[in-house]
Design a protein around this nucleic acid. Structure first.
Lengths: 150, 150
DNA sequence: ATCCTTGCAAAGCATTTGCAGTCAC
DNA sequence: GTGACTGCAAATGCTTTGCAAGGAT
C-alpha cells in the first residue's frame, strides 16, 4: 500500500550499476500496490496485464533486483513459494498454515507485538555462539477463519 | 540432545495408526542426538551408516511421521532445505544467512528473548482479520562469525 | 558502443508420489 | 492375513541459468 516512487527506484538501481527498465518499474508498482505479500507467480500475473510479453524469469530477476536495492524483502518459507514485500521495515506477519498466505498484523496492533531483545542478550549471543545478529523475524502462525465463523 | 525414547515413539506412532519400524526409530535417534537442526539429507547420511539400504524418500516419510506424531517440528525456509528439530517446545532460533544453518539461542539466554503478545492482541487480531493464532516463530537472523574474529 | 536485461527453454534442487515387494501387527 | 511401509524411479513445483536478441546509458 505504499506509493511506488519511480525516481527512487531509478536511483536505487543506478546505485548498484543496474538499469531502469519497464519490467522492473511494473514489478515494483505491483508490489507497492498490495499488502498481500504476493508470490512471484502472483506478481507475474499482474505485471502481464500491462506487459503481456513479460516472462516469469524476468519477474524473478526483477524481484531479486529490488531486494538487492533494498526496496523489497523476500519472505521465504519452505512450503510453497517465496513471498515479496515492498514494506522493508521490520513488522510482524501472520501466516496461514492452510493456504500459505501471509498478511500483516493489523497496523493498530503491530506495535504491541514486540520482541524483547535486550542489547546484552545480543552481546551474549555473539560471545557464546559467535553469532552476529543483524535482523529478526517474528511470525504468528495459525489459520484464517472464514468471516462469521467462530 | 534429548534422549530418544523408543517406547514413547512406538506409542506415539500407534496412536496415529502408524507402525514402528527400524527406519523410523533410527531417524528419531539421529534427530534426538543433535541440536543442529539437520536437513533431511543430513539425517539420511547418518541413518545410512547403520541402515545402508535406507532411501532418502523413506527418511522424508519418517520425518513427516514424526512431525505428525508431535515428536518433531519442521522448520521451513525458502532458501535451501527444510530442517528438523526433535525439540518441540517453542524456542528462538538463530539462522545464518550465509550457510543456511540454524542453531539455538544458548539456553541461558533463550528466556530473555521473549515475544510480548498479550491475550487482548491475539483477540484483536482474530476480530480484525479473522486470523486464529496457534503458534509463533521467533528467529534472529545474521551470520556466524568465525571464532576469534570481531 | 558497451554491457545489462529480456524472454525462452532447459536445467537444478528439494520434495513428493506411484507402485511392487516387504514387513509390522 | 491385512494394511502400512520401504525403496526405487519418475514426477512435481519453484526457482535459476545459459544464451541470443534487444534495450538502457
Amino acid at each position: 500500500m505504499l506509493k511506488a516512487d519511480t525516481a527512487m527506484l531509478r536511483e536505487a538501481l543506478a546505485r548498484q550499476g543496474q538499469r531502469f527498465t519497464r519490467q522492473r518499474a511494473r514489478v515494483y508498482e505491483v508490489l507497492c500496490a498490495t499488502d498481500r505479500h504476493p508470490t512471484a507467480e502472483e506478481v507475474y500475473v499482474k505485471v502481464k496485464r500491462e506487459l503481456p510479453s513479460v516472462s516469469l524469469a524476468t519477474v524473478y530477476k526483477s524481484l531479486d533486483a529490488l531486494v538487492q536495492c533494498g526496496l523489497a524483502q523476500k519472505l521465504t518459507y519452505g512450503d510453497g513459494s517465496a513471498r515479496f514485500d515492498a514494506n522493508i521495515k521490520h513488522h510482524p506477519h501472520l501466516r496461514d498454515l492452510e493456504t500459505g498466505q501471509v498478511l500483516d498484523v493489523p497496523m493498530e496492533l503491530a506495535d504491541r507485538v514486540a520482541l524483547r531483545l535486550p542489547d546484552d542478550v545480543i552481546a551474549g549471543i555473539q560471545k557464546m555462539s559467535g553469532f552476529e545478529v543483524t535482523g529478526l523475524r517474528v511470525e504468528l502462525v495459525g489459520r484464517r477463519v472464514p468471516a462469521g465463523v467462530s
